[in-house]
Amino acid sequence: MDSPDEFVQKNAPKRGGHVYANQGTGDQIIHAPLAPRGLGADTKALLVIVAVDIVFFVVGAMSYTGKNTDGDLWRAVIFLFLVVVTVGIARRWLRRRV
């Protein structure tokens, strides 16, 4: 005796994928989950770190002394570190979108 699901086509597309249905015999079940709404945690993290970069850049630019450059050097090193971290997060964010 045939199983009830023997002639049932089931499709579950991956994110950004497509489903091609066959119009053969039996029922066809196509699962197409709804896309999540709103900003994801990775997008929020990227926006926060970009804002921190901008604020730190402006504060560093306004704090430039011209004399005793130890503080300026530390601000520059911290800013460069933040930029490297931001680029890493942005690359990861872009790879998840493609």
Rank of each mutant, 00 (worst) to 15 (best):
P36S: 00
P36W: 01
P36H: 00
R37Y: 08
R37A: 07
R37P: 02
R37E: 08
G38L: 06
G38F: 03
G38N: 01
L39V: 08
L39C: 10
G40F: 06
G40M: 04
G40H: 01
G40P: 09
A41K: 09
A41T: 03
A41F: 04
A41S: 09
A41H: 02
A41I: 00
A41Q: 06
A41M: 07
A41N: 09
D42H: 00
D42R: 01
T43E: 13
K44P: 04
K44W: 08
K44G: 02
K44H: 09
K44Y: 09
A45C: 07
A45Y: 03
L46Y: 08
L46C: 06
L46V: 06
L47M: 13
L47P: 02
V48W: 08
V48R: 11
I49D: 04
I49N: 07
I49F: 05
I49K: 08
I49S: 02
I49V: 13
V50D: 04
V50H: 01
V50L: 13
V50T: 08
A51K: 12
A51N: 12
A51S: 15
A51L: 11
V52Y: 15
V52N: 15
V52W: 13
V52F: 13
V52P: 00
D53F: 08
D53L: 14
D53R: 11
D53H: 14
I54F: 15
I54H: 14
I54W: 15
V55Y: 12
F57I: 13
F57E: 12
V58M: 14
V59D: 14
V59E: 15
V59H: 14
V59K: 12
V59R: 12
G60K: 06
G60H: 04
G60S: 03
G60F: 02
G60N: 02
A61F: 03
A61N: 12
A61T: 12
M62H: 09
M62A: 10
S63I: 07
S63M: 07
S63N: 07
S63E: 04
S63L: 01
Y64V: 01
Y64G: 02
Y64M: 01
Y64W: 05
T65L: 06
T65M: 07
T65Q: 05
G66F: 05
K67C: 07
K67Y: 06
K67Q: 03
K67M: 01
N68Y: 00
N68I: 09
N68C: 10
N68V: 02
N68T: 01
N68M: 08
T69A: 07
T69G: 05
T69Q: 10
T69W: 02
D70K: 04
D70A: 08
D70R: 02
D70I: 02
D70S: 09
G71C: 05
G71P: 01
D72T: 05
D72Y: 05
D72C: 07
L73C: 04
L73T: 09
L73A: 11
L73S: 05
L73V: 06
L73H: 06
W74S: 10
W74D: 11
R75S: 02
R75P: 05
R75G: 09
R75E: 02
A76K: 13
A76T: 12
A76G: 14
A76M: 08
V77Q: 15
V77G: 13
V77Y: 13
V77P: 10
I78M: 15
F79N: 03
L80A: 14
L80I: 15
L80R: 15
L80C: 15
